[in-house]
Design a protein around this nucleic acid. Structure first.
Lengths: 210, 210, 210, 210
DNA sequence: GATGAATGAGGATTCATTCAT
DNA sequence: TATGAATGAATCCTCATTCAT
C-alpha cells in the first residue's frame, strides 16, 4: 500500500515464486497477487514477465556475490578464507533458500524457454574471488606453487555447489562441513606413498607427470 | 506411424523440449508437433503431461546411471575408476546435452511447479558407485584409511558436477580434466608443512583436530 | 451446433462484425459469441484474428466479383451491360450491406493497423470485366473508337462507387440510376457546340486536342 | 513543451495514427507517445479518445473543403473549374495522404465501432460547390440545360473519388487525368448515332425518354 | 490406435482512463 | 498545467485435456 514499495514487493514476490515454480510455471498474475498489486501496476514497473524475471535474478545474484565477497574479505588467512567461502555459500542457501534456488535454476535450468540470464554463471562471476584466494594461499605457503588456479576452483566450487544442492534438497549438512572441505582439499585423500615415490605405472598422486 | 515408433518419437521429442525449455514452458502440443503425432495420440500413450515428463526423465536417468556404472566397473584400479567416473560424466554431457540438461533441471530445478521426480538425485543414486570406489581405494592403499566416504564423495561429485555444468554452458573442458581431478583429489593442494608439523593456530591440513 | 457449420457461422459472424465495427474495434470474443462458438474453436479453425479477417474479406470479395461478372455476362448488348454492371453493384450493396461495407473498409480503410488485403482492390479486379465491355461497345459501334479504356473505367467505376457509398450512407437511390449512368456516360453532359466547331480557346468537349 | 505546442502535436500525431491504423487499432498511449506528451496531458487537452478523433477529423475535413473551394473559386470558366476540382482533390491526396486516408476512413469506414462523424460526407458537403459549378456551366452554355445536377455530381465526384483512392493505393495517376475527366464528362464516350436518330429499341444516348 | 474438433480455464499483455501530487 | 503511478476490464491467444468417430 505504501508509495513506491510496490516495486519492491513485486520483486520479492517474483523472486519467491520464480524460485518455487520456475519461470514457465509462474504466472504474472500470481506474482501480482502475491505482491498485493494489480496486474497493470506490475507491467508499469517491469514492462513484461521476462524483465521482471531478469531483474529478480540480477538482484539475487548481486546479493549472493556480495555475501561471498564480504565473507571472504572478512577472513584473514587463506585457510580462513576457504572456510568463509564455503560457510558463506551454505549460510546463503540456508537464509535465502528461494533466492538460492532461483540462482541454481537460472544457471542450470533450461535455456530457450526462459529468458537467458546475462550472468554466465554466478559461480564464474565469483571466480575472481577464488583466484585471489589462491594467490594469497600461495603467498602464505599454504598452497603448493605449482597447483593450477583452475584445479583449486574445481575442487572449491564443486564442493560448495554440491553442499548447496544437498541443502536445497533437504539433506542435513554437518556443521563442520566447511572445515572438512578445507582439510580434504589441502591434504587430499591419497595415501602418502613413500614406498613408491616414483610412481609405478599407475598415475601417481604427485603432480601430474605430463 | 507404427505402434512403437510413435511412442519413441514422442519420448525423444519430449526429452529435447523439456530439456530445452523446462516443464512449464513446454506445451504438450509442441511435443506432439515435434514428434509428428497428433495430440490425442500422445495422450493415448502417456496419459498426461506429467507422466510424459516423468517417463522422459526416468529414461534419461537410467541411461546416465548405466553409463557411469559401466564406465566405473570397466576400470580396474581405484585411480582408473576415478578417471572413468569423471570421464563418463563428461562424455555423457557431451553426447546427450539435452538429456544432461534435463537431468540437471529435474534435480536442481523448481519443486512446486513441476512434477517431483522420484529419484532424489541421480548423484545420490550413483553414490553407491562412489562408496564402492572408496572401499576399493582403501583396499589398494591409495586412499588413507581415515578419510571419510562423504569427503570423497564431496570432492568427486563436486568436481564432476562443476565440469558438467561448465560443459553445458559452453565452456571448453581440457582433455586432461579427469586426470587432474584424480591428481588433485589424491594429493590435495596443500603444501607439505614439515616446518610446521604441529599446526600454529591456523587449522592444519591434517585430519581435523576436532 | 451442427457439425462443420461452426466454421461457416464464424465466417459469417466475422463478416458482419468486421463490417459493422472495423477490424480494430471488433473483438474475437464478440465474433465467437455471435457465432455461438467458443473462443478456442474459432482459433482452431482460423488460427488468429488476422486470418479470420482475411478469409472473411476473401469470401466477400469473391461473392461480389461473381455477382458482377454474372450480371454483366448475362446482358447482351453494351448498353445493357453498362446498366447491369451498375445495377449489380447497387443490388449487392442493398442485399449485403455488411459485406459491401467490409469491402469498402478493406479497400479504402487504414493500412498498417489492419491486415493488408491481397486484393489490390476489387474494383481493379473487376477491371477486366469493364475492359471487355468497352471492347464490345466499340465493336457494336456504341463507343467511339478513340475513347480510352481507362476513361471509361474512370466514369463507370466512379459512378458505381459513389452510388454504392451513398446507399451505404443511407441516401436513397433512384431506381433509374443505372440508366442515367449509362445515358450520361454515353452522351456526356456537354452542349453540342456547332456554333463553335473549331474550339475557341477553351479546351473543347471533343477529343483532347493534345 | 509550451501550451499550444503540445495540443497541436497531439492533434497531428492523432491524425497520422488514426489515418494509418484506424480508430480501433490506435491506442491513446501511442498517440501520446508519438506526440511526445504524457498520457494525462493528452486527456487534459482532449477529454477522451473519441473527442480527439473527432477533432482530428474536423480539422482534416476543414482543410480539405477549404482547398477544394479555393481551387474552384480560383478558376474562372466552367471548364477550368472542372479541372480545378479534380486537380485540387488529387493534390490534396498527394500532399496529405494521411489526412486523405483518414477522411476516406471516416466517411466510408465502419459505423458502430468508431465515433460517428457529424459530416455526413465531405463529398456531400462539397456538393454545394459542384452545384454552383453546374449552374455556371449551364450559364456558359457548356452544359446542356436539361442535364440534371445529380448526374453531373455523380460523374464528377465519382471520377475524383476513384482517382483519389487509386492514388492512395499507390497507383500512378497520369498528369492529364483532370483534363481527361473534363473531356470525357463533357463529350461522353458514345458514338454519334446520326444513322439511328430515333433510337432502335436500345435505350438511346440522348436524354432518357422516360 | 488414431484423429478432427471442441472446450473451460487461464496465459501474458494492453486498454482507456483517473488520481494524488 | 503536467505527471508518475495506478486500475478494472478487456485484449488476443494458448493451455492441458477430452470426445465422438
Amino acid at each position: 500500500m505504501s508509495d513506491h514499495d510496490a516495486r519492491e514487493r513485486v520483486l520479492s514476490a517474483a523472486l519467491a515464486l520464480f524460485a518455487a515454480r520456475g519461470f514457465g510455471s509462474t504466472s504474472v498474475r500470481d506474482v501480482a497477487r502475491a505482491a498485493g498489486v494489480t496486474n497493470p501496476t506490475l507491467y508499469y514497473h517491469f514492462g513484461n514477465k521476462e524483465c521482471l524475471y531478469l531483474e529478480a535474478i540480477a538482484g539475487a545474484s548481486a546479493r549472493f556475490t556480495e555475501r561471498i565477497e564480504a565473507a571472504v574479505s572478512g577472513a584473514a588467512t587463506f585457510d580462513d578464507k576457504l572456510i568463509a567461502y564455503v560457510e558463506a555459500q551454505l549460510s546463503y542457501v540456508r537464509e535465502f533458500p528461494a533466492e538460492a534456488r532461483l540462482l541454481a535454476y537460472a544457471n542450470h535450468g533450461p535455456l530457450q524457454g526462459d529468458p537467458s540470464v546475462d550472468l554466465m554463471s554466478h559461480h564464474l562471476r565469483s571466480s575472481q574471488v577464488v583466484l585471489e584466494m589462491v594467490a594469497q594461499g600461495k603467498g602464505e605457503g599454504r598452497v603448493r606453487p605449482e597447483v593450477r588456479d583452475e584445479d583449486v576452483m574445481m575442487l572449491l566450487t564443486g564442493s560448495a555447489l554440491v553442499a548447496g544442492f544437498a541443502l536445497l534438497a533437504g539433506y542435513p549438512m554437518p556443521a563442520d562441513y566447511p572445515e572438512r572441505v578445507r582439510d580434504t582439499m589441502l591434504r587430499g585423500i591419497g595415501a602418502e606413498t613413500p614406498s613408491n615415490p616414483t610412481g609405478s605405472g599407475r598415475a601417481g598422486a604427485g603432480p601430474s607427470e605430463g
